[in-house]
Design a protein around this nucleic acid. Structure first.
Lengths: 219, 219
DNA sequence: TAGATTGTTAATCGATTAACAATC
DNA sequence: TAGATTGTTAATCGATTAACAATC
């Protein structure tokens, strides 16, 4: 188990750890060297109690009256989250979203590299996307094996999502990022994380509706 | 308050309601007319108890020995989530991701329409993205007001995110979808939902690491 | 030193699950 | 009818918050 990680961290805590890491990085860019649980809490809309409780899952200790040393905390959080590793990824689905992911430079800046993009549509196969060429699905299993690809990003329409996920799993992928609306069932050793923009938008429209005054008027 | 909604539904439940709706739609496409709490639970990796408990937040009743009538359930869930309304959106940030959202046809299929895309980079302003032309940030507040835009999608780099969010809020936007890593603080009447692909990837890499055997070997 | 901030325990709060009477 | 499935109550489980001694 990587350094800095203590047994199992609850998913709710892991989500917040990503926010802590982002905030610490941002503060470091501003030249700040220490952060406190109160500062983190206020910025992220939490209680300082939650922040301290969360950080107790991680092998790093703050200092009374000073807080947490930023660089040390960032490094430990990066270790726990795996942000210090060079993960290898493939994107399946060369639609607008899949292409955008390949062209997005945030990944490479963070050490995550997309090694291949695949599509079943013969019209898309061979097309250039940044430095990559869209490959046919036939070659996916061999590609994943030979390049020791860790992560598969599922960026295909809902109907095709589970078929694609099954193929990636059979190819020996270690984890899936699911961008499709379909729920993906995978074996226990292959974690799946959903990042579904349509679902997020529905959460948002639900929340907006709740704020509509009872009168039903506009705004 | 829209029909079918009972007072306040916890966020954890709302998230699952989006999944239930997606599953019911998929089953309807297959010609199925009834779904049960057991079927929903098994497909989505939940207990049937959770499904029934969740659906009790919604103004729709199942039938003993048959389950839930698919079309009725879909319609009520759509009402609760706001999926039956024509939401008006703008995208701020005409990078790869922002452009992909405009070109993505899933939104229009779901009645969500992107009315404008904005960028502060003069080199991007004027560029065509699908049927839209990238606009300068100057025009954002007037555009939001005149077009009665409901939702702002924040698709800019972390540094710019909060400035953009503040501008959208000042323009009278009703809700924000945040795709940037920055945490956005908004007034209570402006809900913010995060959909951050980098954060999701970090949750995934954390989960993958946990599955590494203690020996530290590959796979 | 005085007092701000930590780490941790215990209490509270909320979410999930189990159980089962009601029902079609 | 018999029995499968609902809606709901109560029990369990987990996550958040409050409180405070320890400490730098």
């Amino acid at each position: 188990m990587p350094y800095g990680m203590k047994s199992k961290i609850p998913p709710s805590v892991v989500k917040r750890l990503t926010k802590y890491m982002a905030h610490v990085q941002q503060r470091q860019n501003e030249g700040v060297e220490w952060v406190s649980s109160v500062e983190l809490a206020e910025t992220l809309g939490l209680t300082s109690s939650t922040v301290r409780q969360d950080l107790s899952h991680v092998d790093f200790f703050g200092v009374s009256r000073r807080g947490y040393e930023a660089e040390g905390l960032r490094r430990v959080l990066a270790g726990v989250l795996g942000a210090d590793k060079a993960w290898r990824m493939v994107v399946v689905g060369a639609g607008h979203l899949g292409q955008a992911l390949v062209l997005h430079d945030e990944f490479s800046r963070r050490g995550m590299k997309i090694y291949g993009i695949f599509d079943k549509d013969p019209k898309k196969v061979g097309m250039k996307v940044g430095k990559l060429v869209v490959r046919s699905m036939d070659g996916l299993p061999a590609f994943v094996g030979q390049n020791e690809v860790d992560i598969g990003i599922v960026a295909v329409p809902a109907e095709a999502a589970h078929r694609v996920a099954d193929l990636l799993i059979a190819s020996g992928i270690r984890g899936l990022l699911n961008l499709s609306l379909t729920h993906i069932v995978a074996p226990r050793h292959v974690p799946v994380v959903d990042s579904r923009i349509i679902a997020s938008l529905l959460q948002l429209t639900h929340a907006i509706q709740q704020h509509v005054p009872a009168s039903g008027g506009k705004r």
